[in-house]
Amino acid sequence: MYRFIVRRLASGVVLIAILTTLTFFLLYLSGGDIARRIVGEGATEEAVQAKAHELGLDRSVWSQFTDWLSHAVSGDLGSSWFNGQPVSDAISSRLSVTLSLVIGATLLTAVLATVLGVVAATRGGWVDRVVQFLGVLGHAIPNFLIAIGLVSLLAVQWHWFDATGYTEFADSPSRWLSSITLPVLALVTGAVSSVAQQVRGAVIDALRQDYVRTLRSRGLSETRVIYRHVLRNAAGPALSYLGVQFVGLIGGAVIIEQIFAIPGLGQVAVGATSQGDIPLVMGLVMVTAVIVVVLNLLVDLAQGWLNPKVRHA
């Protein structure tokens, strides 16, 4: 197991390294006249030159890259070109908001999808058909449309929730809940419907296994067989899929945060992108990649816990 973790961790580090390198060259080689954009169209050529020199843009891309890399490994991701704020500060102050949104949505997805998937697989009949139909719809409708629908009906028309804004949990738990409910709902609809389909399929597969009959023959109750044995065996495939959904939820959160005016990474990302604030974009890509790698490692660990074969491999 120890070697397994080390191996996965190493491949994660390599993945982050390649991804950030590629992103760096993509961003720095195609950025156009960045210094001109920062100082403004009306600025003199000297001012542009001075800005370019200040930001190190007059050096070769390669030397800029080694410079960035040597700082990045010590945690210094540079500073914003536009307001001089350190990238790590800009990101870390917003990270918790986005993570709480995405992790909350993932946990809710896991619970709802498991319940729906198990019920659909074991009850069959109309329950199954309803779950499957909703699954297709929930999967097809983009989550920002759901978010817009929720905002315009529940918040703007009926005033059940705050339309926009975000309250820290520490400030007021009840307002935090109110501010996060609609965004999380909008995020989970699609994820729940597709993960529920996966759970349903995995449970049906597991129920067909011979050992299920043998466990029943030993006098274990149906609840015990399903929730202890079948679910444990179905959890592996469903969990991998939940991991994929988590990555999708990070992307979804970028758009959802705009709709609900939630001060998370999404806002930073959209701002940095439209301005062309390359160091900030670079930092965001790297942080996202790290989150994804850590998540995949967690999924692998959970797989090892669930499946003795993986653990002993």
């Binding site: 961003l27 990555v247 992307g251 979804g252 992108t273 965001l284 996202t288 994804v292």
Partner: peptide, 12 residues
């Protein structure tokens, strides 16, 4: 697959 599509597109 390591980056969410939206984030990758923002970088692009």
């Amino acid at each position: 697959m390591a980056l969410p599509g939206v984030v990758a597109l923002l970088a692009v």
